[in-house]
């Protein structure tokens, strides 16, 4: 996925999840929207925030904080949703804040550091060193696959 040929550039939508900056390949992002009226799905995996109606389509919302094993967002904080498609189904990745779109040279993509949390490492395709911080590139498909964790009790 990362044929590191110099000069090739890829664009990512940056999002903040917890304190961390993540990048999502722009080709995967259908839209960014404010999730409304989330319906809880009882007995679903912990990271499934619920389902919602996006213009007549039923979208499964994934709480990315939970998916990444982070603490839940403080009560009352507004999150945003990144709409993506995965195997013909619509998903929304709930993130704290969407950021800018960055255009980066693929050559700068490094493998995820070995010290990265194992849970994160499995969802991260690679890392870019930005000026002030690290940008972890999210592997959307893996993020949407069922996590190995058992269904929440």
């Amino acid at each position: 996925m990362t044929d590191a040929q110099g000069g090739e550039r890829r664009s990512f939508v940056t999002v903040e999840i917890g304190e961390q900056l993540f990048g999502i390949a722009i080709g995967r992002v259908r839209e960014v929207f404010a999730p409304e009226r989330l319906t809880r799905v009882p007995l679903s995996a912990r990271e499934i925030a619920g389902v919602l109606n996006l213009r007549g389509r039923i979208v499964t919302a994934i709480d990315m904080r939970s998916r990444l094993g982070m603490a839940p967002a403080p009560a009352g904080s507004k999150n945003m949703a990144i709409g993506v498609d995965h195997r013909g189904e619509a998903f929304a990745l709930l993130v704290d804040r969407p950021g800018d779109v960055v255009d980066l040279d693929v050559a700068g993509l490094e493998p995820a550091p070995a010290t990265l949390d194992r849970r994160w490492a499995s969802l991260v395709e690679g890392v870019f060193r930005l000026d002030d911080r690290l940008l972890l590139i999210l592997d959307v498909d893996r993020a949407l696959a069922a996590s190995a964790e058992p269904v929440a009790a």
Binding site: R37, L43, N53, I58, T60, A146
Partner: peptide, 19 residues
């Protein structure tokens, strides 16, 4: 992802737009 939950047969959108 949610099909494994035997309690639900599907989802629907109500008149008020909620799922």
């Amino acid at each position: 992802r949610l099909k494994e939950i035997p309690l639900f047969a599907g989802a629907t959108i109500l008149g008020d737009g909620s799922v």
